[in-house]
């Protein structure tokens, strides 16, 4: 039988005695996050087909009634559509609204306590998995992480400490996204949908609703929010108010345990929602109205 050799340098890339598939998870994360980043960047650069409210935003089959194809749908990666809301303010702006929007949820996810684990392992590979050696990946070298390890104490990792502010913005975005979801059901009249009724349920309405629910679960299962709710308290029973906060904390803690799950499902669903609207707007796929 083969001899087991003593590892001389436990820091060498991949140095480990683990014989399970430790590389599977970081690879999947690398693939999954990478795919989303590439897709979102492409979608942002593409700069159109992210909404279906106006006839000129969508491709309509020849000879069809355009009014039957408009939808009160807006892709979450372009919401709020600031140039449309404030045309005068943004008259100079000629690119996709995604570039104005994405940095905020992007920052929320980039400083998220789950994603930190995910990309430190998958993208920076120091280490890629537990008890596996790892030298800095090209990406971490690019960011200058080759000298003495300083964790999250110095620029740029210093900003990880400000995760809560990205949460505040993300929570604000939830209001806007909830408005978008509401529009998906109750915003059909003013965009001039064919039958003139204001309420419809399209497949897209449900997709957008799913998006806001999943993003809500992800946003409000945040560790910083958990801290603000009551995690910062040392005594829960000391007043009625702190007791109420404790109850909320306990419920939120349940969500928080599933933060990773929500992070992934919401990410995938955001991508899917954009793709769905994009395909419909491009006329490749047809949104069905259920009732």
């Amino acid at each position: 039988m083969a001899k087991t050799v003593v590892i001389q340098d436990i820091n060498a890339t991949g140095a480990t005695e683990r014989n399970d598939g430790w590389w599977v998870e970081p690879l999947m994360v690398l693939g999954g996050l990478g795919l989303f980043i590439v897709y979102a960047t492409w979608a942002a650069i593409q700069g159109e087909f992210y909404a279906m409210e106006k006839v000129e935003e969508i491709i309509i089959p020849a000879g069809a009634n355009a009014a039957e194809f408009v939808r009160p749908y807006l892709s979450p990666i372009c919401s709020p559509d600031l140039p449309r809301w404030f045309p005068e303010l943004f008259s100079w702006y000629q690119w996709s609204p995604a570039f104005l929007i994405l940095p905020f949820p992007g920052a929320f996810r980039a400083t998220c306590y789950y994603y930190r684990k995910a990309y430190y392992r998958s993208f920076f590979t120091t280490p890629a998995a537990c008890s596996v050696g790892g030298q800095p990946s090209p990406l971490s070298k690019l960011l200058g992480f080759t000298k003495k390890y300083t964790g999250e104490t110095q620029f740029p990792m210093y900003f990880q400490n400000l995760h809560r502010f990205t949460f505040y913005i993300a929570a604000l975005f939830m209001v806007i996204l909830a408005y978008d979801a509401y529009q998906g059901f109750f915003g059909w009249e003013h965009i001039g949908y064919a039958d003139g009724k204001n309420f419809h349920v399209g497949v897209g309405s449900l997709v957008i609703l799913g998006n806001v629910v999943l993003l809500g679960l992800y946003t409000f299962s945040c560790h910083s929010w958990r801290h603000l709710l009551a995690g910062k308290l040392d005594c829960f029973s000391c007043s009625d108010f702190t007791s109420k906060r404790f109850d909320a904390w306990k419920r939120q803690s349940f969500l928080n345990e599933h933060h990773m799950l929500f992070a992934w499902v919401s990410l995938i669903w955001v991508g899917f929602t954009d793709l769905y609207i994009r395909l419909c707007a491009m006329g490749i796929w047809q949104d069905r109205i259920l009732f």
Partner: peptide, 15 residues
């Protein structure tokens, strides 16, 4: 204790 050096790689929780 230098908590800033922890970057939430979460291996501690795993083991």
């Amino acid at each position: 204790a230098g908590i800033g050096l922890c970057n939430i790689t979460k291996c501690c929780t795993e083991v």
